[in-house]
Simulated scan of single mutants.
Amino acid sequence: MISELDDNDLLAALATLNSEAVAAADRLTASNSIRKTLEDVLSAGAAQLLEMTDGAPADVFGFAADDGSVSAILRALQPTVALDAAGALPLSAHGSTAAGVLAAAEAVVSAAAPGAIVLADDFGDDLDAASAEYLACLLRRNSGQVWLSTRRPDVVRAFPAEEMIRLTRSHGHRQAHQLAPTTDRKERAARRHLHPLLLPAMTARTVALLEGPHDLDGYTAVADRRLRSGGVAPPAAAGVRMVAPANGTGGKDELPKLARLARALGFHVRVVLDNDKPGTDADLVSELTGIAEQVIRLPERSSIERALTHGISPVRLRTTLRQLVADHGLTDIAVDTIAEESLKEKTIKALKQKGGLHQPFVEALSHGPTPPLAGTVLDTLCQPVADTVLVEIELP
């Protein structure tokens, strides 16, 4: 890049660098310590064996970078950057992000040639999120055509959804999946799930769609606790990423849209449904079983809250509820006055307060088994898909 801008100045600078390097090496050789060491080595028999008959054989020794060429001197140099109060440090000492930003910026400059075609593999792996997105945007703007392979969802933000191609080999053979351009209002609305939900899962083989953020918090907390306490592998170990619609408290109505979008991008799709109002979701279940590979439904009159509380002894429930009340200021709950037969329902009601206390509840559970109903859902997600699409979970 430099030589294309000013070749004469470059050659002059290289010649000066070479002469100054030679002069510096001569001064090094003439230093008393180096001179004395050379004379000691030569007088120990080396001068005689090498037939160095001159009265001052040390005079013929010197130093050069590698083979003595200018190229060797340049190879020995590395850039330094003063980014903060630490002063000028070698670029490698600033970490991989600084080097990655400069390398990508070099590509942006090189791509400015008219009609340039840019191909980059693993783009953004060594960049922070904002830098990855911005530099990808610049490459797309400056290039005649740009092809970036990446595992970073931030890079994909630089491109319209239909310019993204997701490559898979989890369907028995290699496939490429690409969204078609659309002007359909419903389809455009569904694609709003792409960046917040599906792109962060882009490297997973399977997405498990949950009804909402409370479900995601609850099942994730149980999976984390089972892994810590008993070494039980979570769905992630089977290549399954749990995701949920993020609008408000979620909602079942978004699941078919999200399932279709995920399938169009080559994901294996599973769905986990509550069943707190039996008989009201027949149409939804029918629609989802036509899209997803597996639909897991909780037992009748069960929701995520019941999945977290079922099978927990009254003693543990009361202790945990008391902890939630203390930690989160649930002043309207007098734990010690709740009758045992009402304890589970009161706990379920408490879980829905303060924006959802599902994850804190699981963390506050005293020593003992994790919620068995939620565990059964997680175990089902970890297993291969069965021939039957609809899986009805039974109470443990």
Rank of each mutant, 00 (worst) to 15 (best):
E300M: 06
R270I: 07
E305R: 01
S286W: 08
R270D: 12
D276W: 10
L284N: 03
S303K: 03
Q294W: 03
E293K: 06
V295S: 04
K277M: 12
G290E: 14
D276Y: 11
V285F: 02
E305A: 08
V295N: 07
R270H: 07
P278A: 06
S286P: 04
D281V: 04
E305S: 03
P278V: 07
K277P: 09
A282V: 15
L298W: 00
V285S: 01
G279K: 08
E305C: 04
I291T: 03
I304T: 10
R297F: 02
D276N: 14
L273T: 03
T289C: 15
T309V: 15
T309F: 00
I296Y: 06
R301T: 04
D274C: 02
L273A: 08
T289W: 09
R270G: 09
P299K: 06
R270S: 15
I304P: 01
V295H: 10
S302G: 06
S302R: 13
R297Q: 14
S286L: 09
L284T: 07
S286Q: 10
L308H: 01
S302H: 15
A307G: 06
N275Y: 02
P299D: 05
V295G: 10
T309D: 00
A307T: 04
D281R: 10
N275W: 01
L298I: 00
N275M: 02
R301M: 04
K277H: 10
Q294K: 09
G279D: 07
V285K: 05
G290L: 05
T289Y: 07
A282G: 08
E287W: 02
E287K: 12
L288P: 00
A307V: 07
R297Y: 02
D281W: 03
L288N: 01
S286R: 12
T309C: 02
S303G: 15
R301D: 11
P278R: 08
L288Y: 03
R306W: 11
R306G: 07
E293S: 12
R297W: 02
Q294Y: 03
V269W: 12
E293Q: 13
V272Q: 00
A282S: 14
T280D: 11
E293W: 12
T289A: 08
L273G: 12
V269M: 09
I304M: 10
R306D: 12
S303N: 11
D276F: 05
L308W: 00
L308K: 00
D276K: 09
D281C: 07
